[in-house]
Simulated assay, not measured.
Amino acid sequence: MKKKTGSSDRATQAIDAAVDASIASATKWSGVTREDLEGALMVVMHGQDPVAARNLIEYFHEHVLDPNAPDIDVLLAYIRHAFGRIVEDGKSADVAFGLTPGRGEYEREPHAGRDVAATAYVILLTRNGWTWLDAKGEVANLLFADGKGEGAVDKAYRIYGEALQHAPDPYLLDLLPSGTVLIKRDMST
């Protein structure tokens, strides 16, 4: 005799599937470090990366119920950023949280690495006797075709300059593209 599957059996199967999915998602974010979260937040706040935004949301969805979550300040920074874009800039929630580009914007290749390198190079050049304008032009020539990109170098410096300004030279040199030569200028002669 074939056993009839009742609604309680289906409910049990649904609960088991939900528990399995919950266990799978609980292990998905177990290796995330605070630096990973802060890096993803910087990318979302200063660029268009829906994958990073979605990852932040998934991570915090998983961890927000934990009252001992150590990364709650990163969550609050993310929420403050998004709420500010909604209230002050009139953005939709998807745009504010970085899930979709806003009107007139488009998804761009991630360029945080390039921007950090540009900022580091400008700082190193100015420490070695270059003027701000000359350093900015040199970096734009190195990182952009046809010397176009001084505006991008300006923006990169506005975003990362304060954080890198006091970093030691060896650290900044490690941020440059491989093979980059640091040219010193002695402006006193």
Results as ranks from 00 to 15, higher is better:
2 K>P: 10
4 K>F: 13
7 S>P: 07
11 A>W: 12
12 T>M: 11
12 T>A: 11
13 Q>L: 13
18 A>S: 05
21 A>E: 11
21 A>G: 03
26 A>W: 12
28 K>H: 10
28 K>C: 02
29 W>H: 15
30 S>K: 13
30 S>W: 06
33 T>W: 00
34 R>T: 15
34 R>F: 12
37 L>I: 10
38 E>G: 05
41 L>P: 01
42 M>C: 09
46 H>S: 03
49 D>G: 11
50 P>M: 05
50 P>V: 13
50 P>C: 09
55 N>V: 10
56 L>K: 05
59 Y>E: 12
60 F>Y: 15
63 H>A: 06
66 D>N: 15
67 P>T: 10
70 P>M: 07
71 D>F: 11
73 D>E: 13
79 I>Y: 10
80 R>D: 04
81 H>N: 12
85 R>A: 03
86 I>G: 01
90 G>Y: 11
91 K>S: 10
92 S>R: 14
94 D>M: 13
95 V>T: 12
98 G>Y: 06
99 L>Q: 02
100 T>V: 15
102 G>R: 08
105 E>D: 09
110 P>K: 09
114 R>Y: 05
115 D>G: 15
118 A>G: 14
122 V>W: 00
127 R>T: 02
131 T>L: 14
132 W>I: 14
136 K>Y: 05
139 V>Y: 02
139 V>C: 04
140 A>Q: 00
141 N>P: 01
142 L>F: 01
143 L>E: 05
144 F>C: 08
147 G>Q: 03
149 G>R: 04
150 E>S: 03
150 E>Y: 01
152 A>H: 03
157 Y>E: 01
162 E>R: 10
162 E>H: 04
163 A>R: 12
167 A>Y: 00
167 A>N: 00
167 A>W: 00
168 P>K: 13
171 Y>F: 06
176 L>W: 01
177 P>Y: 07
178 S>H: 07
179 G>M: 08
181 V>P: 01
183 I>E: 14
184 K>I: 09
185 R>E: 12
186 D>V: 10
186 D>M: 02
188 S>G: 06
188 S>I: 06
188 S>A: 10
